[in-house]
Design a protein around this nucleic acid. Sequence first.
DNA 1: CCCTTTTTAATACGACTGTACTAAAAATAT
DNA 2: ATATTTTTAGTACAGTCGTATTAAAAAGGG
Lengths: 197, 197
Amino acid sequence: MPKIVDHNERKIKIAEATWNVIVREGLENASVRNIAAEANLSVGSLRHYFPSQSDLFLFSMELVSERVRKRITSKKYDGPPLQTFQEALCEVLPIDEDRKIEMEVWLVFSAKTLVDRKLEELSKNVFLQMRTEIIERIIYTLESLQLLKENVDKHVEVIRLHALIDGLATHHILHPNTVTNKEMINTLTYHLHSICR
Amino acid sequence: MPKIVDHNERKIKIAEATWNVIVREGLENASVRNIAAEANLSVGSLRHYFPSQSDLFLFSMELVSERVRKRITSKKYDGPPLQTFQEALCEVLPIDEDRKIEMEVWLVFSAKTLVDRKLEELSKNVFLQMRTEIIERIIYTLESLQLLKENVDKHVEVIRLHALIDGLATHHILHPNTVTNKEMINTLTYHLHSICR
DNA sequence: CCCTTTTTAATACGACTGTACTAAAAATAT
DNA sequence: ATATTTTTAGTACAGTCGTATTAAAAAGGG
């Protein structure tokens, strides 16, 4: 009966418009009006898809994690395990323009996490998922393949690798000229080799 | 002739009030009015010390870096070099409530850095100072003392240590229950030992 | 005491905020 | 064609924003 508009697809378009506004003008200017204009919509239309601004922000932050997750899971991993793990971890790093935008948006929302309950919960879930499904899996798979050096503390190695990944990504986002793309990837490679035989 | 008020001391009080508002209610609620109320001042009085909001924000962010810098330089370092370096780096980590607040504020401003020229410049300067005066100094001093393992790439070790420190700090701020205080410090100790003989 | 200067206070302005509400437009099923 | 329902558009409201302006209050030097 009604005009058919793919509801979810439209929400994604609006969320991407939100990303653009945030990257270009900052979260402080990510008003409903500015985002609607960026998406070529009226305020009323936007509100039809997102009843409130916090709904819009939550969805926009969720979309970032979904995009990253899809990128990791949809990739084909054949080849030596160490290279496989390196490639998987590279999907989390801001190695191209799209990933950079997502990472910037994620950083901005992460800061907001400190005073926003809903965003905090999302952030926590994504963090734990990354920790258990990527970082821990890599360390413990390396061990079961007997590629890991002896005398390493696996628990600490998990924490170290996780912190290193996010530290590198953050540094490259905030200081791209000082921590270059190449240095970011080289350091990751270096680190993975340093914990293996 | 006039009422004597230590200008700089008052500005520091206001900046600390700004920290409080940011930590408690977020940057979006760090309005001139709210900050003035937190500092028990009228808006007019606050404006007498900070002509604009961006001046206030810049000063408030600068104060964070000053506090951290002072803490590092005023500390007495006697003892074995490895322990000394560890202690120095711990001053950058959010190991107590004061440092946690400062780190939270720094994180919030860092996100704003992406769309604020002045904050970006400050962030860049502080980053480079940290890089050259702390991180590089540690790695290269370790080498000159022949404490460093052979076959390490010093350039990469600098990038790695720097990213690890900030990654650990950020993780503890954002996920204190998952990355605990102890794990943060243990991981740093572990890392320093891993690059030494 | 008065004078000078700093500091404080209060008010006002235009612009922007999130949200609410109402009605027109669009599009499909009958 | 008509009815039904989604989608869009426009307007309005109360509140907050940063900033400007103006004048009163406070306080040490003469």
